[in-house]
Design a protein around this nucleic acid. Structure first.
Lengths: 231, 231
DNA sequence: CACTGCATCTCGTTA
DNA sequence: TAACGAGGTGCAGTG
């Protein structure tokens, strides 16, 4: 990894065009050819960047550019899409190189998959007498998160989201529409389960006869493992 | 901005938990308190990060951690959400500080807004005799990208996307449903226009009587300016 | 302030 | 490989 602190201006041309005026910034050049231009604020998204695979070429500035104080023109080309990032370097303030090697990678725990697993195991959270038929029940328009049965044996399709928005309701609606055409399953009720349900989504769901359930992740995890780990 | 190259392991606890085993990485500490942990590959997303506002505290390792070769424990706390990032530093390979100042910021040009502008100007692309009524036509459920009229004077709602997926079709469907209840507008036809339309989206749209149109950005731009700029 | 919709989204999984 | 959905999404615009 090469880290350059430089006074530079940047132009990107690809899916859009973008321009950054002359200012001091960090230019990060990674081993796979990707380039990130960061300022000293904002969150993780760079001001400008190039995705790998990419290649850097360095050229002399034109007379006019040299006049304006530009010392070098760095052009980063995307190998496949021909997008390009042009960095006009006025002054290099620091330039260092470090060997990091390949990263062993990230292990995650949590999120929707875990919520789904927990709810499937404790489906009675939705009501007395509920039972799970199966997770990821396939339909022609995609997998239903959980297919369950209520106390009377009727089918219930459950869509799980961390944050429940209108698109989640639309998704469940598509599943229900299709499943209710199947005489072996119909009638299928719908449950929209999320850690947080937005007002518009709730309104839309209830208007369509879909029940909304707010999930408590910690509570579900507690049921799973009474000795819930504290951080 | 402080740049640290260190052999470290990282743990994040917040909306999920994640762990990175010991390896050399770049730790970027920005002026607003945000922290990014990057490896030497991948695109712009860090392996782990903390969004601003955040604060860093440094602590001594426990006896057990010291035994394992950890020299310092860096804890980054999010001010609002209480999420935390714990960086266990084994060895600092480089540690530099740079004053960058506030960035003048990015100017963008292109994307969906430009597509919308171009199509509104050349709405006859959709068919002989079409005319634009207005862009960003407001409805109770959001703005319709373009409201137009066909050759016979009937209303047409156009939804524009760069890449057309099912959610774009759902969005247009919601608009159409509402607009068709308005006796002054009804009947309103739908057009789903995108640079690229995905198969599932096309199927869904056509099933609902929505016409799909693939837009050629360069061609539209060419109509706008015959001397299309080359980069 | 919360909500919505776009993104040079990125990133994983699956058909 | 392409397509699809989720994201610790980030981010700008709007009511």
């Amino acid at each position: 990894m090469r880290l350059v602190i430089a006074n530079c201006s940047v132009d990107y041309a690809g899916r859009l065009t973008a321009h950054l005026p002359l200012a001091p910034r960090l230019i990060m050049l990674k081993a796979d050819g990707s380039v990130l231009v960061h300022s000293d604020g904002g969150s993780y998204k760079p001001l400008n960047w190039m995705t790998p695979p990419a290649a850097l070429t360095i050229a002399e500035p034109s007379a006019e550019q040299a006049e304006a104080g530009i010392a070098e023109i760095w052009t980063v080309r995307q190998a496949k899409t021909d997008d390009r990032l042009v960095i006009s370097v006025a002054e290099v303030l620091s330039d260092t190189q470090h060997e990091l090697g390949v990263d062993p990678g990230l292990t995650k725990d949590g999120v929707e998959a875990h919520l789904q697993e927990l709810l499937a195991e404790h489906i009675e959270t939705l009501g007395e007498g509920y039972s799970t038929i199966r997770r990821e029940y396939m339909t022609a328009v995609g997998p239903v998160d959980i297919l369950a049965r209520d106390a009377r044996g009727a089918a219930v399709a459950v869509e799980i989201k961390r944050r429940g928005g209108v698109d989640g309701v639309e998704q469940l609606t598509r599943y229900l529409e299709l499943m209710n055409r199947d005489p072996l399953l119909a009638p299928v009720a719908g449950v929209f389960a999320a850690q947080e349900i937005r007002p518009q989504a709730r309104t839309l769901a209830e208007d369509r006869g879909i029940r909304c359930v707010v999930l408590d992740y910690d509570e579900l995890r507690g049921m799973d493992d009474p000795e819930s780990r504290l951080f």
